[in-house]
């Protein structure tokens, strides 16, 4: 019970990071981006590449930090991966979504995002192989926090949770205290009015993609650290991330964070009752319940 809660909180933190970017894109560009979860894969794999690179150049970086299986090289790689993924997100928008957006059809964007997801997922599979990979092959033992009720926690998990919360705090600061954040919110509220006030729409859109991509990359690395990296990360996480977005209400960053934790915790709790084979279906159950009870999400505005 308490173990499921702990595991759920961790999964929730990862899902939250993915959902923040998705909710911002869905709010600003008004389309459900089915390729967003693939950004997590891009992040996880590019960190793998950078990690190998840094450990190769400076072997001293490959030492582990304290009790973690994380190395300095991996931390450095994570930041590089965040940049690379943000850049990929902007490029994908430039080459695909922007061109369809200019034709003015929102549903075609949803459709295109399916195609983009399919391409990214399988190109990654082609490059890196279909087998699962790990950042580190060392076994990290979980620490028994308490024996009754049984609670085992890996040092990595604590690190991931703290890092995720820190990233969310930084984002909160950027959104609420900087001109950048004001511009972002202004465009989300009313694009034309924001443009009249001198905000470059194309820059703000690029900014949203960069933020979304960076958060997704961090989520991807954290997911890889706790599970393993394979080309179907995106396929497995797309529904939980959508569930978190809908639970929180489209456009609400705080809602996405809360939604992520709700989805993560309830998905883990549900496994106490349901056989584990059903776990992929749990996010959808959450979506169903929410649509019945509160269709606009916990913090969403009524929109048509």
């Amino acid at each position: 019970m308490i173990q499921s809660l702990a595991d759920g909180i961790l999964v929730g933190a990862i899902v939250s990071l993915g959902a923040i970017g998705l909710t911002m894109v869905m709010h600003m560009l008004r389309f459900a981006n089915f390729s967003h979860a693939e950004l997590l894969s891009i992040g996880a794999y590019s960190a793998l590449v950078f990690d190998a690179l840094f450990s190769g150049i400076l072997p001293i970086l490959a030492n582990k930090i304290g009790p973690l299986s994380m190395t300095w090289a991996l931390i450095l790689s994570m930041f590089c991966a965040m940049g690379a993924t943000g850049l990929s997100a902007v490029l994908i928008d430039r080459f695909v979504f922007k061109r369809i957006r200019d034709k003015g059809d929102e549903l075609s964007m949803v459709f295109a995002s399916f195609g983009v997801a399919l391409i990214i997922r399988n190109v990654l599979g082609l490059i890196f192989g279909l087998k699962s990979q790990l950042y580190s092959n060392d076994i990290v033992f979980a620490v028994m926090v308490s024996s009754d009720p049984l609670l085992l926690i890996k040092p990595d998990q604590v690190f991931v949770l703290l890092a995720a919360l820190l990233i969310m705090l930084v984002l909160q600061f950027v959104l609420s205290r900087t001109t950048l954040g004001y511009a972002l919110r202004a465009v989300a509220e009313n694009p034309s009015l924001a443009e009249v006030s001198g905000i470059r729409l194309s820059w703000v859109i690029a900014l949203v993609w960069i933020i979304g991509g960076m958060l997704a990359a961090a989520a991807g690395v954290f997911y890889g650290l706790n599970n393993h990296i394979n080309p179907v990360i995106g396929r497995d996480l797309v529904l939980p991330i959508f569930a978190a977005t809908i639970v929180g209400g489209i456009g609400s960053v705080f809602g996405a964070v809360l939604g992520g934790f709700i989805v993560g915790i309830s998905a883990n709790m549900a496994l106490l009752i349901l056989p584990s084979g059903y776990s992929p279906a749990v996010p959808f159950m959450i979506i169903l319940v929410l649509l019945l009870v509160r269709p606009n999400g916990l913090f969403g505005e009524t929109q048509t």
Partner: peptide, 11 residues
Amino acid sequence: RHDYLAIATFG
């Protein structure tokens, strides 16, 4: 919103 149908049917 129109894309809810897409998400729900996908789910």
